[in-house]
Design a protein around this nucleic acid. Structure first.
Lengths: 258, 258
DNA sequence: ATAAACTTTTTTGTCGACAATTTCTTGACT
DNA sequence: AGTCAAGAAATTGTCGACAAAAAAGTTTAT
């Protein structure tokens, strides 16, 4: 993956002193190729943990013990702590006082809310991008869709989820509203967790070519179609979860008696 | 708050710490009456600093020196640091590596983006609330509007800004989507900063009774009117800033040559 | 055998100290 | 004077140590 120059990330936009700043662009946490067992800045650790969560190597609910992580990354506990608080602000990790950090487990209610939020925001972003997309941007999106289709062909479900999220995030960033892009990043990350949690392994026929059709609408500057497709796509993804949303209720037994 | 029973499984480490969460509801940082010079948990410090920023006692761009704050609140520097990173994640404070923390100064571009985001989200929330508002909720909103009108009558501009933000935030929370409410909190906080920065002292005729009319639409369960009023209101507020948005360009001299 | 009470171990929370960096001050030079 | 450089002061970044809390393990009594 190439390092792209986009100003974003959860820790706030660097106001006045525009550049300074590490400048590393953090997407949905693609795994860093360098295995680098030692020497680690907070940014790198952040990305590796995020990757592990997105790629489901750290399952939702999993406890993240500070000292353990510190040992793994050859970092101090303070640094791990810093990373965990950042992840908790991004809602990927739940921080429970005196208990520790856990990979977030969005509830069914939260899942519904996330999709409701996305339905409000993303069609509007699609509309914007349809109006303004440059050839370079379209090429970049095509690249992502191609990678996703390839991963799908190889039945690499984790990569499909990650790349699909990245596709939506890229659209948000291209739409030219950094604030909304930031919020979409949160929603996209949450969506990855939700899919991991609530996706039914049976009815797997989700986005298929919907991303590609969306892309075509961008290319043709067809705002209405782009917005409509995006809305439909989101509904589609949410629908594919509904089955398990119901099934999940059984699992809530412990929560009911508390 | 209740402590929930967490089931720890032998092999892996799946747990579910759902929803213990901060629990304390933090609004836009109403000033705590207790001046409490000593003994301070992170939450209290957070609220006091946020209050100071919202109420413009800490102006945008102002540097926040850790040790100074630690002395003021009788807390350790580590604790201040924790609060500052939280504020930076909420975009109220900008954290510059090796330089320190500064009260955020949203750019004109960011201001535009914030209002664009709000136009997408808030009319939908207004529509939802119009459908579901309970008498108690309406009473609470009436209370807020009354307080705002009183502050306006007393020409207490800071309180007007704060209460106005609180009104919008309350609507977001009542609308029944916690994710969106959270995002609206960020946007509302940013809006407070934006108004402080870019409000023209001349054309002061902003929301007037718009909040009250919105409230009436809720009371009558008139979804369409509520959404339309909200949209109009947001445009109105943004318009009132436009004059200074242009004027601000002059001020950007330093930014241009950097 | 079960459950409560106690003890040990693990894990998190907090602080102060030291190193690295930036900012301010002083002084020399053109 | 103005600019630059070196030193001093202030400020941030990082770490390890200790205290507090929770979890796991052990004993004891019923």
């Amino acid at each position: 993956m190439r390092t792209r120059q986009i100003l974003q990330d959860g820790s706030g936009t660097p106001e006045r002193p525009q550049e300074i700043r590490g400048a590393k662009v953090v997407r949905l946490g693609q795994q860093s190729r360098a295995k680098a067992a030692v020497g680690a800045d907070a940014e790198a650790i952040y990305r590796r943990i995020l990757s592990a969560i997105i790629e489901h190597r750290l399952a939702p609910g999993r406890k993240l013990v500070e000292e353990r992580l510190a040992a793994v990354f050859g970092a101090s506990r303070a640094m791990i702590r810093q990373v965990l608080t950042r992840l908790s602000h991004e809602m990927v990790v739940t921080l429970v006082p005196n208990r520790g950090a856990f990979v977030a487990e969005p509830t069914v209610e939260e899942a519904r809310e996330v999709f409701e939020a996305r339905r409000l925001i993303e069609p509007a972003l699609a509309r914007k991008l349809a109006l303004s997309a440059t050839p370079a941007q379209l090429a970049r999106l095509r690249e992502l869709v191609a990678a996703e289709e390839k991963a799908r062909a190889q039945r690499d479900r984790q990569q499909v989820i990650r790349l699909s999220g990245e596709f939506h995030l890229e659209i948000a960033e291209m739409a030219g509203n950094a604030i909304l892009a930031r919020q979409m990043r949160e929603l996209t990350l949450l969506t990855c967790l939700i899919i991991i949690l609530y996706d039914s392994p049976v009815g797997r026929a989700c986005p298929e070519d919907e991303h590609r059709r969306l892309l075509e609408a961008f290319a043709q500057r067809d705002q209405d179609t782009a917005a409509a497709l995006m809305l439909h796509h989101l509904d589609h993804v949410e629908q594919s979860l509904d089955i398990s949303l119901a099934a999940q209720d059984d699992d809530d037994l412990e929560r009911i008696f508390s």
